[in-house]
Design a protein around this nucleic acid. Structure first.
Length: 796
RNA sequence: GCCGAAGUGGCGGAACUGGCAGACGCGCCGGACUCAAAAUCCGGUGCCCCUCGGGGCGUGUGGGUUCGAUCCCCACCUUCGGCACCA
């Protein structure tokens, strides 16, 4: 037999799949109902980086590929598309640095990544390819924006935002890590700016509750739960008599209301101005507030608590006490109402502040957890007291139960070029006017310079900016900000269902047929970003009648990081192994096999160059052993030999591992065992059957060599063949190995007929010489514990 | 600080539901083939003791439950992740 040559075999079969459109999946006929036959397999789409694919992609898409082949061969109609998250800063920064247009750079990267993906042999339906930067795609991103705008779910308002001074753009909360820009690491500044927001907070409760309806890793659900941060409490009104002003605060500890000895307002709060206007303290307070508010978030969180008295007092609604109002930097504007009641006795932060500034501290909860110094509520356990006080406040019109969220609305406008234009026009007469649907897409215009200088790059093109108002025809100005790329990726999985539609974003019939996604695979780093945004999008689109489901991703899996030498692979560390080199050296099949063999796919793994060579050895061994078996007679139907039994056992194991357990490292081990056994028993009448089984089972992992060997075994198109089924009869064992223990220690192993009774097994155990030696006649009858067909433990 | 996940040979890992710890692979050791090397093939490989028949220990540490614990419970240590002045 000829030598195994990965390059020849792999390019040969890739050409066949291309020519036969092997992985193109047809849409359902009109009227065809969605049933268990359809399966939507999706991995998170790649960003078309100039570096091409990294090993994380190789793991992600190979895993998806195994599932795709497995489901196809088990009779499902599998949708497995691919596209590109093509807008975003890296291409724009490259254009600034090296010249050229972000579009050219992006298109070049997409072409190169597409080649890599085809060379990996992934079973993708390329007829459905979409990319976020194409007008045929972003036209519908804009259309969806207009739907959100129409329903009051996209709005523009001035708000404190995270500003990255290096990238010259606003960042969403999700992309600020420890006070720094996730992308470039620059310390983020707080600025008040007019920004576009999606009203994701309107869905906070549902985003929380519906986590119960989806099959996701618990840790991911927890991240989303924490990020949404629901807390139940009360809203309490504190009155400033002199100004005839009621200030609401949110508290989870209404039971401690009698211990509220002062009141604090955030430096950014408009209340600061309101409370001090025209007073002698005005200058001092305002200048403090300004300095405190401008302080970088990072510094503000670590510094000691500073503050200044406003000169005003608020009335504690439960006892009428006048408590001083301070402005202090430890109160945040963007949580609750931007003002708090301070209870130094029962809140660490308030206590620290009170001690520093000499404010009174009043205990209102005793050692026993019962209320004290709280008038008619004295003696109540604090939880009951909380209820009672909120009830009393409600009766007085001074408070009510309330729920607060940590989640903020999604700020999605960016002051950069390479993104989807926001399709609105500002008009002095009409305000914010949406661009009419039939004028979409608003094409991304050409500009001279992509670097923003105080205003977004799009503002530098007067032909783009100056347009008549679509409503009144008067002078208008187009929006010059673009959308966060996470808007693009919040609906791409819907477009795949109907990628060429020119009438609408997606046909509801097709989307309802394929969606929700049966298996989604991607990094956990998207837990509170993309995975939350997409859920929000689907809920909104369901509410406005565009689709018929409320969750996009029914089942979710996170692949781990691929590391090398203990650290994350990265260009700067110079430890990158890329798919191109691996394919050239070892072939796509060995690379695919090894990336999944490395360890559990959901844990971080360490790539070693020696390991992949071991995998090439396995492929060559498979090639040789199967080649030899192909020379032998076909195995008789239902042949019962040790090798035949091993083959059926392997079918059962691999099927269970991929299908039920969703583990991908152990199936290869199982097939290796089968191949090892075949090579030791080449004369076994089941040799050819074992070879066919090994090839068939390894096909999802190593589709090229499997296809080639399948052909050499005299068959055709393994990718269309049904997945093998284990013969139950051959999985049954006539004899089993019985483990004999004395006092829990293994003393002997004997071969016994399967299915013996407990009494028979105990008798056999006692008959063992080695067991007897350890029982050594010790007093009385041993107690016996039996696991049928497995183990007998005798205890003396 | 609070919350969560994970710790198994020289290395990656396996052991699915409380029942033989270490499958499979890497590495290493020995042998065959070879003038030699590479490749390939065969055998061995948790640690310690040994009269070579076997014996003891062993899944981060200490305890507990159980006839029996890598698996369940408690405490601690380490690593990784989430949140972090959230009222």
């Amino acid at each position: 037999m000829d030598e195994y040559d990965a390059q020849t075999i792999e390019t040969k079969w890739q050409a066949v799949w291309e020519a036969e459109q092997a992985f193109v999946v047809p849409d359902p006929e009109p009227g065809e109902a969605a049933d268990s036959d359809e399966f939507y397999m999706l991995e998170m789409l790649p960003y078309p980086s100039a570096n091409g694919l990294h090993m994380g992609h190789v793991l992600n898409y190979t895993l998806g590929d195994v599932v795709t082949h497995f489901r196809r061969r088990n009779g499902s109609r599998v949708l497995r598309p691919m596209g590109y998250d093509a807008f975003g800063l890296p291409a724009e920064n490259a254009a600034i640095k090296e010249g050229g247009h972000p579009r050219e750079i992006t298109d070049r990267n997409i072409a190169s990544i597409g080649r890599q993906m085809r060379r990996m042999g992934w079973a993708i339906d390329w007829t459905r390819e979409v990319s976020a930067h194409q007008p045929s795609y972003y036209r519908w991103t804009q259309w969806l924006f207009l739907k959100f705008f129409e329903h009051g779910l996209a709005y523009r308002k001035g708000a404190p935002v995270n500003w990255c001074p290096n990238d010259q753009t606003v960042l969403s909360n999700e992309h600020v890590i420890d006070g720094r820009c996730e992308r470039c690491g620059a310390v983020v500044e707080a600025r008040i700016m007019d920004q576009w927001f999606f009203k994701i907070t309107a869905y906070a409760d549902e985003l929380l509750a519906d986590l119960d309806t989806i099959d996701w890793p618990e840790r991911t659900k927890k991240i989303q739960t924490d990020w949404i941060g629901r807390s139940e409490g009360a809203e309490v009104l504190f009155r400033v008599e002199e100004l005839d002003l009621d200030i609401p605060v949110f508290t989870t500890r209404a039971d401690t209301l009698f211990g509220a000895t002062f009141f604090v307002v955030a430096p950014e709060s408009p209340l600061v101005e309101q409370l001090t206007a025209g007073t002698e303290r005005y200058e001092q307070v305002i200048s403090y507030a300004r300095i405190a508010a401008a302080r970088p978030r990072e510094e503000r969180e670590t510094r000691e608590k500073t503050g200044v008295f406003t000169g005003r007092y608020a009335t504690n609604p439960v006892n009428g006490e006048q408590i001083p109002i301070w402005v202090a930097d430890y109160v945040l504007m963007d949580y609750g109402t931007g003002a708090i009641m301070a209870v130094p006795a029962h809140d660490e932060r308030d206590r620290e502040f009170a001690e520093r500034h000499g404010l009174p501290i009043v205990d209102v909860v005793g050692e026993d957890g019962r209320l004290i110094q709280s008038e008619q509520f004295d003696g109540l356990p604090w939880e009951e007291g909380r209820r009672a006080i909120v009830e009393w406040l409600s009766g007085q019109g001074k408070g009510k139960p309330a729920i607060n969220y940590r989640l903020r609305d999604w700020s999605f406008s960016r002051q950069r070029y390479w993104g989807c234009p926001i399709p609105v026009v500002y008009c002095d007469e009409c305000g914010i006017v949406p661009v009419p649907e039939d004028e979409l897409p608003v094409l991304l215009p050409e500009v001279d310079n992509y670097r923003p200088k105080g205003e977004p790059p799009l503002a530098s093109n007067p032909d783009f900016v100056n347009v008549p108002c679509p409503r009144c025809g008067g002078p208008g100005r187009r929006e010059t900000e673009t959308m966060d790329t996470f808007v693009d990726s919040s609906w791409y999985f819907l477009r795949y269902c109907d990628p060429h539609d020119e009438q609408t974003a997606f046909d509801r019939r097709l989307v309802d047929y394929w969606m929700p996604i049966d298996q989604y695979v991607g990094g956990i780093d998207h837990a509170k970003g993309h995975l939350l945004y997409s859920r929000f999008f689907v809920k909104v689109l369901n509410d406005i009648g565009l689709l018929g489901f409320r969750e996009p991703f029914q089942r979710l899996f996170h692949q781990g990081w691929v590391k090398q030498g203990g650290s994350k692979m990265s260009k700067s560390k110079g430890n990158v192994t890329g798919p191109d080199d691996l394919i050239a050296q070892y072939g796509a099949d060995a690379t695919r096999l090894y990336i999944l063999f490395l360890g559990p796919a959901d844990q971080d793994m360490d790539w070693t160059p020696e390991g992949v060579e071991g995998m090439v050895r396995f492929v060559r061994r498979l090639w040789r052993v199967v080649g030899d078996a192909a020379q032998r007679e076909p195995s008789p139907e239902g042949v019962d030999t040790p090798l035949a039994r091993k083959a059926h056992e392997t079918i059962a194991r691999v099927t269970d591992d991929i299908g039920r357990r969703f583990v991908f490292n152990t199936p290869t081990s199982a097939v290796m065992e089968l191949v090892n056994e075949l090579s030791r028993a080449p004369e076994d009448p089941a040799a050819r059957f074992a070879a066919e089984t090994a090839v068939s089972l390894i096909q999802p992992y190593a589709p090229h060599v499997a296809e080639e060997l399948w052909e050499r075994l005299g068959h055709e198109r393994l990718w269309t063949q049904p997945w093998p089924v284990a013969d139950e009869r051959l999985l049954q064992r006539d004899t089993v190995q019985l483990v004999l223990q004395v006092n829990g220690k293994v003393r002997d192993k004997i071969e016994v007929p399967a299915g013996l009774s407990e009494a028979e097994l105990i008798a056999l155990a006692k008959a063992s010489e080695k067991v007897q030696a350890h029982l050594n006649g010790g007093g009385g009858e041993p107690r016996a514990f039996v696991v049928p067909d497995k183990l007998v433990n005798l205890v003396v």
